[in-house]
Amino acid sequence: MNESNERYDTDSVREFAVSDPDAGPYALAEGSDGALWFTLVHRGAVARRDPDDGRVTVHPVGDGPTVIAPGPDGALWFTEYRTHRIGRITPDGDYSSFAPLTPEGGPFGITAGPDGAMWFTLSAADRIGRITVEGDVSEYAAPGAFPSAVTAGPDGALWCTLNQGNAVGRLTTDGHGTAYRLPTEGAAPVGIAAGPDGALWFTEIGAGRIGRITVAGDITEYPLTDPGSRPHAVTAGPDGALWFTEWGTGRVGRIAVDGHLGSYALSRTDSEPHGIAVHGGALWCALETGSLARIEVPS
């Protein structure tokens, strides 16, 4: 079906309706087919937005699809938080899913690792999982409580936020974990991404800050203007900056590697932006109110 009606348009931001407000677009990623794929967390579906005509195709999957990431096999991989499985969908729409070793683990974050496998967090079980493109699963203890987002670091390790441990974790591909506690109590980190400066950048949803951690574990925090902005997801942009969603204020933020901050207002303060990704040279974010927003990268 085609649900790509333009809803909001400014000089820098455009929004496109892709679902009803109850479906909950949550996270998104560019696929190997050049299309934008996103999860509909409350509909139990993954959707594809065509890069040419904006047509949206919806594919039913397991309950609670959450974070989605491209895999080394050309498919999209995603977590199914409520069915406690790892999903896989090809650009043609062929869907399959796999069970982690730990039941009821609450899979949330997922990323392609440096070893040709996908890595995911089991937030409710304090574990980190690894799944090969053939579906073979192994698991390791997380270095702290409630691992959330996960990303591959520039050092060949996996880095994750430890939301309830108030720390950032590092896990080698052989399962050795280290935790780096954050300076600010109650920071509750969620999103994390590798930056263009060789460091990892993360969001502190509980403290209204953006954090930076070097591979040696040195941490810097940057307070946002509104401490209640609740920054959620973060990604490296095509302009050498980091971009993030502000779930609490309905804005998309940008931070340069020198700490200079900027932000862009969405159509509503309650639009609930969550996932963010680069697509077609712009930044796109998923709004749980039923739209995708496209933010033009400044020249």
Rank of each mutant, 00 (worst) to 15 (best):
E3N: 15
R7A: 02
V13C: 14
E15A: 09
F16E: 08
F16R: 14
D20H: 02
A27Q: 12
E30Y: 00
F38I: 11
T39Y: 05
T39G: 07
L40C: 05
L40P: 08
V41R: 15
G44R: 11
V46K: 13
A47T: 10
R48Y: 03
D50Y: 00
R55M: 03
T57K: 13
V58F: 12
V58Q: 15
V61D: 11
P65A: 07
V67I: 15
I68M: 09
I68S: 13
P70F: 07
L76W: 04
L76S: 10
E80N: 01
D92S: 10
G93A: 12
D94T: 15
Y95E: 04
Y95D: 06
A99V: 00
E104Y: 02
G106T: 12
P107A: 06
P107Y: 05
F108K: 11
T111Y: 13
G113I: 12
G113M: 01
W119G: 07
D126L: 08
R127M: 07
G129D: 11
V133M: 13
E134R: 15
V137C: 05
Y140S: 07
A141F: 01
P147H: 05
A149N: 14
P154V: 06
D155S: 00
A157Y: 01
H176A: 05
T178H: 01
Y180A: 03
R181E: 06
E185L: 08
E185K: 08
V190F: 05
A193E: 02
G195A: 06
W201F: 06
F202M: 01
G208L: 09
R209W: 00
R209S: 05
G211A: 03
V215Q: 04
V215E: 04
A216K: 14
D218R: 10
P223H: 12
L224V: 11
G228V: 01
H232M: 14
G237V: 09
P238H: 14
D239Q: 12
G240Q: 09
L242Y: 14
W243G: 03
R251K: 12
D258I: 05
G259E: 04
G262M: 14
S267W: 05
E272G: 06
H274C: 13
A277Q: 11
A277E: 11
G280F: 09
G281P: 01
L283I: 12
L292Q: 09
L292D: 03
I295P: 08
I295N: 13
E296M: 05
P298E: 06
S299K: 09
